[in-house]
Design a protein around this nucleic acid. Structure first.
Lengths: 324, 324
DNA sequence: TTGTATGCGTTATCAT
DNA sequence: ATGATAACGCATACAA
């Protein structure tokens, strides 16, 4: 029985005689043989491995769910998933990731990082592998976004309808894609001539709980407090919410709060946090599926661009403005 | 210039003449050459890749931080990290993970799953690769634990000292290692003759927010309510805390609540959640370091066992029992 | 249907 | 110090 025979019996069971197939399977089971992955990769030039690039900045509850979606699809397709964090660009870590793209260890990458890593004058692009970008528009990649701008605008309009006129926005880092989209959409709502409402931006700007707390402190010291707060993340909103309530401010009586993401903790606040729920699991699944398709179909025929719907959920933390 | 020369110039720069080294480096930079990883792996029988096995059950905020610690150390050592989820054992996913151990794709594994995956009568063990188990004692692996039993016992004793006599414990799944350790430690405290205090167990048992809420509902319907609640996770504790407060129960006035893990959200509850803070980042770092050492030192000389200290933090949600 | 032989891109051994 | 060469374990083209 030659090695070629075994290889075939394992890789294409339907191309060998049933008798041989059985014999091979028996031997494999008995000896505990597992084909060597490196040799196979070397031969077929495929690793059945996807790279997932992340950034610390992401909130853990959001990220974990996206990751689960990715894992589900990749593992169902028999792909392994290697994880890589890049926090700053251009460092040693970026080099590692770029090298992975060129060394044949991976067949493609999903970017949760918002940018394409670069090092030594090379970028992830030049490796010619398919790239999928999640939650950020990156030229040259398959992109999956959500309708975050529309949703936050819808949320703002709903709050306007509830009578709010003085808004506070808790922003994310200004170089962040999602922050930019959300703020732009929000600014447009308020720029539209049909309203005299105004929105101010809090100074703190990241996605953390701490930023929400800091913003709440500023809020508390204002003479003319906004009645509606729109946050770039649920963490922001929750930090804000807890802090102002601690200081005796009623939610939603004195101030309405709208978060973003729909993490699980938002369901368990008091009051439950109104939020814009992102399809976290589906983002991961869709991202993996697109990448797998791109890998299996060889040359990049055309770059896909998909927009998944968020869900605006007005719950306990938002209500009509109260005259007092 | 032969391939061997290039290989040497890249792998051991100090073993070739400076002139050649420069020439190779120039050519590499110019051509954008990256050595093929599969061929290298095939030759040296090392992949510089670690497998990290997880389970859905873990709380995202806890898990994300451990993962960060792992990533830091692995990437610093030039190792890639592949992630694999196993939820049930014995399925297709387990087979994949076991196969990875035998196919040479990885050099070792860190288990956050509490168990060694098995499939087709083979376990991860038999591959002979180093295994590190985090937060669970698994025979035959390098193990890193925390002093969770001691800490929860200390927490209970502190609550006893504050005058509490009627305790409620919110348990995790009974097949979970951490649940077992924590409950055993707790039970021992109450079994000790020096106290007449009693502890009952809530029926709900997983680490989720929802389980905490369900336990709170039961709590609210009790005629003789416990005055101290010890939860197996911060999520449990937070779900409980929010729900009983919603129903008008004062914390810590009417009931003291102690969580477990020290996730970030615990810092932002109202009141701040008393908890047992686990060294999440350090767990990840230590796990990676141990695995790397085991990989590089070849044959398993002896299995290490390390116990990291938790930190018992009594904060807003716990206080002396109030006679009313 | 099965076996034989070659090459994938490295690294290590050996000779120069 | 460098070059030639074999071998790693698999998949495939081709021969039988």
């Amino acid at each position: 029985m030659s090695t070629a025979t075994v290889s075939r019996a394992l890789a294409s069971p339907d191309q060998v005689s049933p008798e041989l197939r059985a014999r091979v399977q028996a031997a494999v089971a008995k000896l505990g043989y597992t084909p060597n992955a490196a040799a196979r990769q070397l031969r077929i030039k495929r690793s059945r491995t996807a790279l997932v690039v992340t950034r610390r900045r992401w909130s853990a509850p959001f990220f974990a769910e996206v990751l689960r979606g990715l894992d589900e699809e990749f593992s169902a397709a028999g792909y392994a998933m290697v994880l890589g964090n890049v926090d700053e660009d251009g460092g040693e870590r970026s080099r590692q990731l770029v090298d992975m793209m060129f060394s044949g260890t991976i067949d493609g990458a999903v970017l949760l990082s918002g940018r394409v890593a670069a090092a030594d004058g090379r970028t992830m692009f030049e490796a010619g592998l398919p790239l999928v970008s999640l939650c950020a528009a990156i030229e040259g990649t398959h992109t999956i976004l959500t309708d975050e701008g529309e949703c936050i605008a819808r949320g703002a309009r709903e709050l306007l309808r509830l009578g709010h006129r003085n808004f506070l926005y808790l922003p994310g880092p200004s170089d962040n894609y999602n922050e930019q989209v959300r703020w732009a959409a929000l600014a447009e709502v308020f720029a539209s001539a049909s309203t005299d409402a105004t929105v101010s931006r809090a100074e703190q700007c990241d996605f953390s709980l701490a930023a929400g707390v800091a913003a709440a402190r500023d809020f508390l010291s204002m003479k003319q407090r906004p009645t509606a707060v729109i946050a770039v993340s649920d963490e922001n909103a929750i930090g804000f919410l807890q802090t102002v309530q601690e200081a005796g401010v009623g939610v939603p009586h004195d101030v309405s709060v709208l978060g973003f993401d729909g993490i699980e903790f938002a369901d368990f606040c008091r009051p439950t946090l109104s939020t814009i729920r992102q399809p976290r699991l589906e983002l991961g699944r869709a991202g993996a599926r697109i990448l797998l398709k791109a890998i299996e179909s060889g040359p990049p025929l055309s770059l896909s661009r998909e927009i998944l719907p968020n869900e605006l959920q007005f719950r306990g933390s938002t209500g009509p403005v109260c005259e007092t």
